[in-house]
Simulated assay, not measured.
Amino acid sequence: MQTVKIVVTGPFNAGKTEFIQSVSEIDVVSTERKITSAAEKVKESTTVALDFGRITVDDDLVLYLFGTPGQKRFDFMWEILSEGMLGFVVMVDSTRPETFREARTILETFRAYAPTPYVVAANKQDCKDAWDIEDMRLALRLDPKVKLLSCVAKDKENVKKVLLELLYSILEEMGEGNS
């Protein structure tokens, strides 16, 4: 049985917890706390340490999903959570362009921790005010080779597609390392 550690990261309120909850076969271990600041009241709670979920892909493969906190004040957890990861997903809220720069910074931070494969998930693509994928690619300054995937974090099948794309990238890189 092969286990693969995947980190799900991104700015505050990008959909990381929901992403993990929609596919996890176990109850997600979550360190959510109520939000007290009025400025952050776009939602009721925030992740302060991590979210943890698990999904069995097949008889030989289990993914452990670790969600990071999105708020800057908890970013000390990022490096800890990145240890041993084989890949990561950067969640970006397609409806909040003001978070794109922060998403780019988070992506660069995780690339610095470990040069592992990653995908960028453009979440909330089901919302009418969601940015177009190619416009997001430009705004995020993503290389054309980077997989930027349409995502709806509450849709289990959609989340599975994002994780599969990341797995393909991981397998591709492992294959190159063996040749």
Rank of each mutant, 00 (worst) to 15 (best):
L107T: 02
L86N: 09
T36P: 00
L50E: 05
R111L: 03
G87R: 00
D60T: 09
I106L: 06
T99D: 08
T95R: 14
E83D: 12
L63V: 08
V92C: 06
S94P: 11
L86E: 14
Y64V: 01
E98C: 08
F110N: 04
D58S: 13
A39L: 13
E102F: 15
V48E: 03
D58N: 15
T99P: 06
L107G: 01
T46L: 00
M77D: 03
P115E: 11
A39G: 10
F88G: 02
F52N: 04
F100H: 06
F74C: 09
S45F: 07
E40S: 09
L107W: 04
T46A: 00
V89I: 07
E83H: 08
P115T: 03
G53N: 05
T105Y: 14
A103G: 15
K72T: 04
T105E: 15
P97Q: 11
G87D: 00
L65V: 09
F110V: 05
R73S: 12
I55W: 05
D93G: 11
R111I: 01
V48A: 02
P117V: 08
P117M: 03
F52A: 06
K43M: 11
T109P: 01
E44V: 06
G53T: 06
R111D: 00
T68A: 15
T47G: 06
W78C: 07
F100Y: 15
V62C: 10
G84F: 01
I106N: 03
R54G: 04
S82G: 09
S45C: 06
E83K: 12
D51M: 04
T56A: 13
S37C: 04
T95H: 10
E102A: 12
P69N: 11
A114D: 11
R54Y: 08
L61Y: 11
E44P: 10
K43L: 08
F110G: 03
